[in-house]
């Protein structure tokens, strides 16, 4: 999980993560891919009785999870989810990491194999600030995309429209879609022109019918 969304609330959970927490049924089994310091899983365990595991590559983050008492497995997401059985989780989470993967489409297929539902969030590359930067001839550097083009870990950025198209093409069912601005709120502007005004996109997906 990137640290570029840092709006904390009183309970110490970012609003986008609070939204995700609201989607998760109490007592379910959750796998959080790129779980960072484990804050979300910690919250889900304490407030929703969730039995969860996080996957994380960074050693400092793994240590932070262990210090919190969050189950964490040190592994590289690009190595895939082959160690996880089909249908073994209720939800598999991928927050703000999709755009940094080698093959985001294959990753989501794998996520939908392992989890009954996938919860995926990503920065919207269709946001007007991004478009403005590109129109002025430069790669965008925004609050949700803070790195320069040469040192960003983001290699597969997409817009809300692109992601909708991918879901349709693969037959993934969109159960929930929430689009948030930089303050992690859903304003009137987003309702008017989502792909232009949303900075963060949150999706809950199910696999193809019958799969």
């Amino acid at each position: 999980m990137s640290a570029n969304l840092d709006l904390d609330t009183g309970i110490g959970l970012r609003p986008d993560l609070q939204l995700i927490a609201g989607w998760i049924k109490p007592g379910s089994r959750v796998l959080d891919l790129g779980c960072g310091d484990g804050k979300l899983l910690d919250y889900l365990a304490q407030h929703r009785g969730v039995h969860g595991y996080g996957l994380e590559i960074d050693t400092a983050n793994v240590a932070a999870c262990i210090a919190r008492g969050v189950n964490v497995i040190q592994a590289d997401l690009d190595d895939g989810l082959r160690d996880f059985e089909t249908g073994s989780f209720d939800y598999v989470l991928l927050t703000q990491t999709l755009q940094a993967l080698q093959r985001p489409d294959e990753a989501i297929e794998e996520i939908l194999r392992v989890g009954r539902s996938a919860i995926v969030t990503f920065p919207n590359f269709g946001h007007w600030r991004v478009r403005q930067a590109l129109l002025s001839g430069h790669m965008p550097v925004t609050k949700t995309l803070p790195a320069a083009w040469y040192d960003t870990s983001n290699i597969h950025l997409c817009t809300v429209a692109d992601f909708d198209a991918l879901c349709a093409a693969r037959g993934w069912r969109v159960r929930e879609r929430r689009l948030l601005n930089r303050a992690h709120r859903e304003g009137w502007s987003i309702r008017l022109a989502p792909n232009l005004f949303a900075e963060v996109a949150l999706y809950q997906l199910r696999g193809r019918l019958g799969s």
Partner: peptide, 20 residues
Amino acid sequence: REIVKALVDAGRPVSYALID
């Protein structure tokens, strides 16, 4: 990782660290 996989499949709480 075999140990970890079996523990996850058994629903047991487990953390795994790979030390460089």
